[in-house]
């Protein structure tokens, strides 16, 4: 029995032509691999469970506030004189660098307290204002903050109280990167260097764009 190869050949040619057309249109049929950064890029961004934090002036800050722009989130506290100001200064430099390299990209820089007992929303905003008034300082209910931090792989606990500041806090020193769909896209590991973070962010954003354009994920 002889097989008729014509329909199969026709199908192969059709698929190839569609593939080339999609590729020419900037669409990718294949999966893309997450870039290597100082930290980690998730192959699939993680959707966040709803949360409610508090910003200054009694306004709630929820998952909706993370939509429409990239966000960088750091957890710290105002009684921290060493690591937290260092990270805020790196945030400021990162903001300045990205404003030059990606002037159209909207970015949010957020610091959430791990010490809501002492850090009110007003205090947090005043703290970040010292570095840049465009930064967001957040506090809120301690259970809400704990759950939100856990989603972003951040842990913290109260440290010793044999110091004149009352007590210290132990906390993860990573920075969470949130994409414009409000999803957890990447983690920047410490020590944080603005120059490295700027390069890594370009990779994370490029990966997101490739991913958005890949038909593989539809």
């Amino acid at each position: 029995m002889r097989l008729n190869h014509k329909p199969i050949l026709f199908l192969i040619i059709l698929i190839l032509m569609l593939g080339i057309a999609a590729w020419r249109a900037g669409l990718n049929l294949l999966p893309v691999t997450p870039p290597k950064i100082y930290g980690m890029t998730f192959s699939e961004p993680k959707t966040l469970a709803p949360f409610v934090l508090q910003s200054a002036g009694g306004r709630a800050f929820t998952q909706k506030d993370l939509h429409g722009h990239w966000s960088f989130i750091y957890f710290g506290y105002t009684h921290c004189p060493d690591a937290c100001p260092i990270t805020m200064l790196q945030f400021k430099q990162l903001q300045e660098t990205l404003r030059k390299t990606m002037p159209k990209q909207r970015l949010a820089f957020i610091m959430v307290t791990v010490d809501p007992e002492r850090d009110t929303p007003k205090l947090m905003q005043a703290y970040v204002n010292h570095f840049a008034t465009s930064f967001h300082g957040l506090s809120g209910d301690s259970m809400e903050i704990k759950a939100f931090a856990k989603q972003l792989f951040v842990g913290y606990q109260r440290g010793e109280d044999n110091t004149a500041i009352g007590y210290t806090m132990y906390h993860s020193d990573s920075i969470a990167v949130i994409n414009p769909d409000g999803q957890f896209a990447a983690v920047f590991a410490s020590p944080h260097k603005a120059k490295n973070m700027a390069q890594d962010f370009l990779k994370v954003a490029a990966y997101q764009q490739q991913r958005d354009q890949s038909l593989f994920y539809r």
Binding site: C80, D82, A83, G155, Y156, Q157, G159, E160, N162, T163, A164, T168, M169, Y170, H171, S172, D173, S190
Partner: peptide, 20 residues
């Protein structure tokens, strides 16, 4: 300042903190 202490940065369970 009212008080002066010596502190050291340290890691505990993957978290960063400071010890008096």
């Amino acid at each position: 300042s009212d008080t002066v202490e010596l502190h050291r940065r340290e890691m505990k369970n993957g978290m960063m903190g400071m010890r008096h």
